[in-house]
């Protein structure tokens, strides 16, 4: 464990908690893409099956359980409890265009052709594009609530910190995982446009306006 991975995990946890609390407190999921949240729940489910097979550390197990729990709680709030506030008309990204290619790629490019490894690879590829429905929805509505932009900021920051963690681990431990690194670079690049807007419009403090 190094400081970059720890702050990355905490940034990820912060994003997940910010979103869950926002929906819970405002009792509304307006402006939130339920599709992205379903994809994240799928990412955690397929990646953390090793909860059943191996124990790494208390930290590792605890964080995985929190991530999975919060992901499903968020999906529940969006599609069940606060369903009336779900903005389905703007959450129209065709997720099958993400899941099918990612599923195929996981079969073709992986470290080991075993079920657990293919599911892990699928989850890594899926995570890199899981935010697209959310970014697409914001570009359609043309704006995002401030709290939603904080959620996206921490979510984008987490994988950027993981990239530094992988540089650190390669240099000090000789460890690297090309699949995770390439997917992580793609994932972080997708946030670049948002990061620019978040920083440049941060001063205004008003609703962020994304280019349509």
């Amino acid at each position: 464990m190094n400081i970059f991975r720890l702050t990355g995990d905490l940034s990820h946890l912060a994003a997940i908690i910010i979103l869950l609390l926002k929906i819970w407190k405002t009792r509304s999921c307006a402006g939130i893409s339920g599709k992205s949240q379903v994809l994240f729940a799928l990412v955690f489910t397929t990646r953390y099956l090793d909860l059943l097979t191996s124990f790494i550390s208390l930290y590792n197990t605890t964080m995985k359980i929190i991530y999975i729990g919060c992901a499903y709680a968020t999906v529940y709030l969006i599609y069940m409890k606060f369903k009336a506030t779900y903005d389905g008309n703007h959450d129209t990204f065709r997720v099958e265009f993400l899941v099918v290619p990612v599923g195929g790629l996981a079969f073709l490019v992986n470290h080991d052709f075993s079920p657990l490894e293919i599911l892990w690879t699928f989850s890594i590829y899926l995570e890199s594009v899981a935010i697209l429905p959310q970014l697409f929805m914001i570009s359609k509505t043309g704006e995002a609530e401030t709290i939603t932009t904080h959620y996206l900021f921490f979510l984008g920051l987490y994988r950027a910190l993981y990239l530094i963690n992988w540089i650190w681990r390669f240099y000090f431990e000789g460890f690297f995982d090309m699949i995770a690194i390439v997917a992580g670079v793609v994932q972080t690049i997708l946030y670049c446009d948002f990061f620019y807007l978040y920083v440049t419009k941060g001063e205004s403090g008003s609703n962020k306006i994304n280019p349509a």
């Binding site: 790494i56 590792n60 964080m63 470290h111 963690n165 090309m178 995770a180």
Partner: peptide, 10 residues
């Protein structure tokens, strides 16, 4: 080395 056997990252 390539990816570690044990996946210790979240």
């Amino acid at each position: 080395t390539t990816a570690k056997e044990v996946k210790d990252e979240l």
